[in-house]
Design a protein around this nucleic acid. Structure first.
Lengths: 161, 161
DNA sequence: CCGATCGTTCAGTATTGACTGAACGCTCGT
DNA sequence: ACGAGCGTTCAGTCAATACTGAACGATCGG
């Protein structure tokens, strides 16, 4: 395997590990990203020197996160995986759903708080507001991003409300 | 400790755990957030039923993440901790620095890739571009957020470039 | 119908990481 | 100068989790 590829794969493993997921999941994603084509489970296991079982599990996890997708080839019983057409958009969607959960928690807890914790209640309302805004801002980012990829404007200046 | 507070503390522990950090760090942050005042290490350890050592370590970690800050009281040798005035802004700054690292990795690896991996090179340039845009979009979010908190406009419609 | 070739499941293992209790160093008050 | 109170460090313990190898089930070709 190419040297630059191998280094990148390892760095992606570390990055993804810091983000909370398994290191080998990051390695798989890195290889698929830089490979730019579909890989079978066997090929992934071989190139990453990992067991087929672990690769299978991590691929399904990456698929749930919306980062990669499974694809089948005619006349081939094997499962192939590749990065989705826009993995970052789907990753952002997952992040948004987590933020939505936080908004939900803040919204549920704040009214249940005893009145003497007025400062805490204010903080929670603020947190709820911030994450709501964050979700909307990422929505705007998606619009811009899609516009950049379909259109040809190199520098977007307009946003969606 | 209040029942609603206790439940919130626990939920924040789970949320923060999913984000990649330690569960008790999340508990500490939750308690400080909802408490709305400064807490000494002893008080945190007591209310969370954890060891002083663990609380100390996690508080320093939370401080590095920019979520809480240490504060001292006159005539008191103890260290107090409280949530920062705007914890979410600082959390976003930390997230941005992680994205900057990713941009750096993408930018470094792409030129080192062999030419036959043209699709992979394209993916990496795309990833770099996306995360750069993401950083800028969060900058815009900060501007909006600060504007909302200092000013009084309930619904912002303008963005910064 | 049988063998081969997949992907998945499962139990076992190893490694990582968090938490604790005790010792330590430091800084005050007296 | 000494002791009390404080935060931190460190070694040990514990639980969680990722990974592996082997068995299993399914599917296709001959």
């Amino acid at each position: 395997m190419d040297n630059a590829v191998q280094q990148f794969v390892e760095r992606m493993g570390l990055i993804c590990e810091k983000e909370g997921m398994a290191r080998s999941a990051g390695r798989i994603f890195g290889l698929l990203l830089v490979g730019g084509r579909s890989y079978s489970l066997d090929e992934l296991a071989e190139k990453l020197q990992a067991s087929k079982a672990g690769v299978s599990t991590n691929c399904r996890m990456l698929e749930q996160f919306g980062m990669i997708e499974q694809v089948s080839a005619l006349g081939d019983r094997r499962d192939f995986y590749r990065v989705r057409e826009d993995p970052w958009e789907h990753m952002m969607r997952v992040a948004q759903s987590r933020w939505r959960d936080m908004v939900k928690v803040f919204g549920e807890v704040e009214p249940a708080l005893p009145p003497q914790l007025s400062e805490g209640k204010r903080r929670l309302r603020e947190a709820e507001e911030f994450h709501g805004l964050l979700i909307r801002q990422v929505d705007a980012l998606m619009d811009t991003w899609r516009g950049m990829r379909t259109g040809a404007a190199p520098d977007p200046a307009e946003h969606a409300a």
